[in-house]
Computed example of a mutant assay.
Amino acid sequence: MNGEPALTTEVVVYNIESALNAQKGGADRIELCDNPGGGGTTPSLGTIEVLREALDISLFVMIRPREGDFCYSALEFKAMKRDIAHCKELGVDGVVFGILSPDGTLDRKRCGELVELARPLQVTCHRAFDMTKDPFAALGDCVESGFDRILTSGQKARALEGATLIGELVEKSRGRISIMAGCGVNEESVKEIVGSTGINEIHLSAETTRESLMEYKNPKIKGMGSTTGKEYVVSTVSAQRVREICKNGLDAQKSSLPGIEENSQL
């Protein structure tokens, strides 16, 4: 149906190779992070700069000074401000963050301050939203703080499990802010998530692994740090998986919208 927004696909990546594969697979946007085991933290400036030069699609950067909760000290908040300033200097398209108060509400004051600092970049509230005690109050707080979108799994472990809440958030947002479904979005789940919620943005990893290019392997060392057994395995993104998830999501969106012909373009 003409005028309906297309489905935007954002792929979370943790290294340069993954970002390039995501672009090859047809992703619209990259969310660049470090530390996958900790849920994503701020990546290095060098990686941001290299990918800004290499990518033709939008590049968003995670602004999160550490893993763990989203209740930050004054110095951590100061670090977030500096990281946002660096991202603006490097020419990224958006930043991703979220700050909570100890009582489980969104910290509107500090989030609003970071949003203002980030402009004119796009700004996403990440899954700190899923840790709030009242998602509908948090929705209003995100709007008031100036966020452009919310990344959410519907406050469940996976977006498919939280699809009912995601749909309610889309309805209550009334176009004031975009709701993006993420966590567990794959080739199969994307069909129901998109078809049942009315979202226009999805967030996915499309992860895979490949063998190391190393010919020599030291058998005396089993991993560095906590990566035992993975010293010669590289985590990356599957371009084919991105392509298939995009296609399935678009098909689900098309079938859920009335009056769309089979050959129409979203």
Rank of each mutant, 00 (worst) to 15 (best):
residue 141 D to G: 10
residue 165 L to T: 10
residue 68 G to M: 06
residue 221 I to S: 01
residue 224 M to D: 08
residue 181 A to L: 12
residue 60 F to H: 04
residue 2 N to F: 12
residue 204 L to R: 08
residue 195 G to Q: 10
residue 51 L to Q: 01
residue 205 S to E: 05
residue 11 V to Q: 01
residue 38 G to H: 11
residue 175 G to Q: 12
residue 104 G to M: 11
residue 102 P to I: 13
residue 172 K to H: 09
residue 105 T to S: 15
residue 205 S to K: 14
residue 213 L to S: 12
residue 258 P to A: 10
residue 154 G to P: 08
residue 244 E to R: 15
residue 157 A to V: 15
residue 93 D to E: 03
residue 201 E to N: 14
residue 182 G to T: 12
residue 196 S to W: 07
residue 40 G to H: 03
residue 103 D to P: 09
residue 141 D to Q: 14
residue 97 F to V: 02
residue 128 A to G: 11
residue 178 S to L: 14
residue 243 R to I: 07
residue 76 E to Y: 09
residue 252 A to Q: 07
residue 176 R to H: 09
residue 108 R to Q: 14
residue 147 F to K: 07
residue 245 I to M: 06
residue 10 E to H: 05
residue 63 I to A: 01
residue 241 R to G: 01
residue 215 E to N: 09
residue 164 T to N: 13
residue 98 G to F: 05
residue 82 R to K: 13
residue 54 A to V: 02
residue 168 E to W: 06
residue 46 G to A: 04
residue 136 F to V: 09
residue 221 I to Q: 03
residue 12 V to C: 13
residue 194 V to A: 11
residue 61 V to P: 00
residue 212 S to Q: 10
residue 127 R to A: 11
residue 39 G to D: 07
residue 138 A to N: 08
residue 84 I to N: 00
residue 135 P to V: 05
residue 229 G to H: 08
residue 105 T to Y: 08
residue 58 S to T: 02
residue 225 G to V: 09
residue 10 E to K: 07
residue 31 E to R: 01
residue 260 I to H: 05
residue 242 V to Y: 01
residue 29 R to H: 01
residue 44 S to T: 15
residue 174 R to I: 10
residue 26 G to A: 11
residue 210 R to N: 05
residue 120 P to G: 01
residue 109 K to C: 07
residue 207 E to V: 14
residue 176 R to Q: 15
residue 169 L to W: 05
residue 118 A to S: 08
residue 194 V to Q: 12
residue 93 D to T: 00
residue 240 Q to G: 06
residue 192 E to Y: 10
residue 53 E to W: 01
residue 62 M to W: 02
residue 209 T to R: 15
residue 247 K to R: 15
residue 38 G to R: 13
residue 153 S to P: 05
residue 24 K to R: 13
residue 16 I to Q: 03
residue 265 Q to T: 14
residue 241 R to I: 13
residue 186 N to F: 09
